[in-house]
């Protein structure tokens, strides 16, 4: 039997087990940990399917950021599930039936990786060849200095080409979804004081006194890690067109560096480095940078997000300039929203 297939089946079984265990687990801390494990397993599955960008995002957002956020939420609500335990039989029947319908629906789908699948034949080949070309009335100069291809072979990572250019409008709204999530949180969460330590069984925020004893080791090692995390974040941000990565993953990484800083040195110290008003502003600025790039393309005679219209600004590399700008917008919004959510969920210690 194909060893890769065997691995896939094993991973899938583990993922299902982790998901079911997370649901049955009565201790919320355990539930969150199992969800983290589930995400990590999914990240490995994506990698096994050669979806490296998805895998990277799942690992950084699903297993990383989401787990940290849920843990922080637990510091506010406690880890005991108060009610529950009533498993409704009709609901189970309904879910199983839905699953059966879904299995039926996928039964006629082409096999994974089938070169004759419609998804491989219709649009994808042109994405891979990057020879689509703009619409006839676009602002592209006819004698494109890029050389051949949509991006002059400067974007070997096709995922990024689709994400930031071919379907850049979707990505703008994905960024807006992140922004909306941050705004909803600012709208809904009241700055209630954190609960007294008796009801808090875990404490991730690190600014309370009882963690001081370990703090020498943690501060030294953690403090050394922060610059590396930041550099890696910037690398992922700038390198998305060549390898897996881009604004979403980079934003989470940069946010992680600051979260680590605030866990180790307290929030007051982080606020000195990164004032709160700046984080609030950056949430809006990221989406603004993305949409503004599109508007600039319109003002220069192209369609919205038609980066080739930026030719006047940066002649040979207009597409690259546009993609860099929008990716920076994504990174800015993602990093600042994650930081805001963490800050908001941590609650007021001061």
């Amino acid at each position: 039997m194909d060893p890769v297939l065997l691995l896939d089946v094993l991973l899938l079984i583990l993922a299902v087990l982790a998901a079911v265990a997370a649901m049955l687990q009565r201790d919320l801390l355990g539930s969150v940990m199992l969800m983290g494990i589930y995400s990590l397993l999914m990240a490995v599955i994506w990698a096994n399917l050669f979806a490296m960008d998805v895998s990277f995002t799942e690992a950084s957002v699903g297993a990383g950021a989401a787990t940290v956020l849920l843990l922080m939420a637990l510091t506010r609500i406690g880890t005991r599930e108060r009610s529950g335990g009533d498993h409704s039989l009709p609901a189970l029947v309904l879910v199983v039936l839905t699953g059966v319908v879904l299995l039926y629906g996928t039964s006629e789908l082409p096999r994974f990786g089938d070169p004759q699948a419609p998804a491989q034949l219709h649009i994808a080949p042109r994405y891979l060849a990057q020879d689509i070309g703009k619409v006839s009335d676009s602002a592209t100069p006819q004698d494109s200095p890029h050389g051949e291809g949509d991006f002059g072979h400067h974007v070997p990572n096709t995922v990024t080409a689709v994400l930031a250019s071919y379907r850049g409008y979707d990505t703008m709204f994905e960024t807006a979804v992140i922004f909306s999530a941050g705004m909803c949180l600012l709208l809904l969460l009241r700055p209630i004081p954190r609960r007294s330590p008796e009801t808090v069984t875990i404490d991730e925020s690190g600014s309370t006194s009882h963690q001081k004893s370990e703090s020498v080791v943690l501060r030294t090692i953690g403090g050394m890690l922060i610059p590396y995390i930041l550099v890696f974040g910037f690398y992922v941000q700038m390198h998305g067109e060549i390898g897996p990565g881009g604004g979403f993953q980079a934003g989470v990484l940069v946010a992680a560096a600051f979260i680590l800083h605030s866990l180790l040195f307290g929030r007051a110290a982080t606020d000195r480095w990164l004032p709160r008003w700046l984080v609030d502003l950056a949430m809006s600025l990221g989406v603004l940078l993305y949409a503004g790039t599109g508007v600039a393309c319109m003002a220069m005679g192209g369609h919205f997000l038609d980066y080739s219209a930026l030719d006047r600004v940066h002649p040979a590399e207009a597409e690259a300039l546009g993609m860099t700008l929008v990716e920076a917008g994504v990174g800015l919004t993602v990093a600042s929203v994650v930081l805001t959510i963490v800050r908001k969920v941590q609650g007021g210690t001061r």
């Binding site: 602002a139 250019s165 038609d306």
Partner: peptide, 12 residues
């Protein structure tokens, strides 16, 4: 309206 100047169905 072809967003990004990419013709449908390749662009949005």
């Amino acid at each position: 309206y072809p967003l990004g100047g990419w013709p449908a169905p390749f662009g949005i």
